[in-house]
Design a protein around this nucleic acid. Structure first.
Lengths: 331, 331
DNA sequence: TTGAAAGCGTTACCAA
DNA sequence: TTGGTAACGCTTTCAA
């Protein structure tokens, strides 16, 4: 099998402890000694056992990403953003998919902590606001970073964007194009960002003096299928919307599919707006985004906060992260 | 902190070893004893430390998914398929994103094995055919399952679908609709499935007596952007294709975006076919798929093979896993 | 600046 | 069917 720390110490003619010091970049190792040890390590192809380090030292060199079953683009963005920071630090990523509605999420996290003792945890909505989970993390002293938290922003390190402002901007833009009947597809109820985005939409309508028609606000669940379904409901209305703002890209894709299926031309017959600016957004046009790939950026930043043990709350600068297909002004 | 195995043994009035037996479902534990131990475990909220188990027993209760940076839908499908089996077995998933073109992938895997000693590894293309990686795995005795391997099918447990047949069927269908100029977007060169799908396309053309026009075959890289680019090239041709078959859904989405951007109506002006049947495929129609979500199914099956330590090679039944938008026959 | 020895929490081997 | 006790490979504490 692989060489262990003793093999290295013997090869280098030093004690085990000294090898350990080199491994952990501790001070008080003479450069010459360090060099000798490092040479022995690479000569033997030594790789420290994560299990042994975790058992003895408490650090597991693993962080956990807790996410529910989000859309493909959300997951992909997270992974994309976490890859670099983790690789640089030599940290492994455990992806822990949780059931959004499981009753025992707190116990779930406790199990995760006890079993793996991760060096840190990244929480994605909606679990980022789940009290039992936060409590379990804090009680265990496990550092964690929340992505897009909805409550108690100062409670932990967190990364987010200004969802309300972004949704307001996007709605304003649609209004500016002449749209008056703008459908809105709300995200999953459990997610704080769903409310924030809805708030932005409502705000822009109010500002423009457009009365709210509740029929135009439909429930979605952030996934493709719910976008399809919500669009179907919206397009069945007697007084159809001329634009639909889906508060996630996955749902926007669903809207697009529905539009296709009904023979509607996009954007001539229907303007569609999405949120998040993933690749999917490029099915729409023009490019109105000020921030590319906010999810990737948030994940990357979250990892940085975790590794630097900073309790900072970061709101990434993003006046607008959505896109729309913008056809000719509606009749 | 949490209770350890000794606390449990004391609470239950048995030896440590007996608790260990219960934990591992070993034989030779009297039902009464087992019950007593189990009660003590739940009373104390005992969770065995993965690190200690790994160190002492060799099993880490972790499996690793090695994947490059695939499209969002591929990644999502994998996670979706692995979630259930892992949860049922109490196994954690390490997602190890590798650089497709890194020179030292073999060393990378060796490091992974030494450090984490995963109970198993799932390999996705193109690493599923990477000799140094397979060798490292075999030398270490780590069970592994390959998804969509391209060579040496019998070398390990593996799961795949018949890519060539699926691509042939899809091309036949397009031909059946009257298309004669069918663009094809090849996947990343490093992936075996790219060739398999291309072979199916070529086969169908030959069968129909349609001469191959190399201009119609464009290189892509399985991602959205390369689909856009390839479509742009295809649509610039003097003698445009009337249909484009992209050998992945992510690329098909890119084709769709390009078509939109050029004001083409889909499918009236351009038929688009995709591969894999993710949600994205629902942007196209009609539903010609015989197998829903092949990626999810492959991942699920791969996990099963890994856990059952079966060396089986599974080819999932799927005559057709692609979809196309099918407009009126081209002029 | 270096080293010796005592754990960390579990499993494995051998007895009882 | 149960129980000691020695590993497992590293970090930590305390000396030197």
């Amino acid at each position: 099998m692989g060489a262990n720390i003793r093999d290295v110490s013997e090869a280098a003619g030093v004690s085990i402890k000294t090898v350990s010091r080199v491994l952990n970049n501790e001070r008080y190792v003479r450069p010459a000694t360090r060099a000798r040890v490092e040479q022995a390590m690479s000569a033997l192809g030594f790789r420290p056992s994560a299990a042994a380090r975790a058992l003895a030292g408490g650090r597991s060199f693993q962080i956990a990403l807790m996410c529910s079953n989000p859309g493909p683009y959300f997951l992909h963005g997270l992974m994309e953003g976490l890859r670099g920071p983790c690789a640089r630090r030599g940290v492994r990523l455990i992806v822990h998919a949780y059931e959004r509605d499981a009753p025992e999420l707190g116990a779930d996290v406790r199990t995760l902590i006890r079993q793996m003792s991760p060096d840190g945890v990244i929480l994605t909505p909606p679990i980022a606001d789940h009290e039992p989970v936060l409590e379990a993390l804090e009680r265990a002293g496990t550092p964690y970073v929340r992505i897009s938290p909805g409550v108690q922003p100062g409670r932990s390190a967190a990364v987010s964007i200004d969802n309300e402002a972004a949704a307001r901007e996007m709605t304003r833009m649609l209004i500016g194009l002449g749209h008056r009947r703008i459908g809105f597809i709300v995200g999953h109820r459990a997610y704080a960002v769903s409310n924030q985005r809805l708030a932005g939409y409502l705000d822009a309508l109010r500002e423009a003096g457009i009365g709210l028609d509740l029929e135009l606000v439909q429930q979605g669940w952030f996934d493709f299928a719910s976008g399809e379904a919500a669009a179907t409901r919206l397009l069945r209305l007697a007084d159809r919307p001329t634009a639909i703002f889906a508060s996630s890209d996955d749902m926007a894709a669903g809207v697009l599919a529905t539009a296709h299926a009904q023979g509607l031309r996009v954007p001539a017959d229907l303007s569609i707006a999405g949120f998040d600016d993933t690749d999917l957004a490029r099915l729409l046009w023009p490019p109105l985004t000020t921030m590319r790939q906010p999810i990737v950026a948030m994940a990357d930043r979250a990892a940085a906060l975790l590794f630097d043990k900073s309790g900072e709350q970061v709101v990434l600068p993003s006046e607008l992260v959505a896109r729309a297909s913008t056809g000719p002004a509606p009749a």
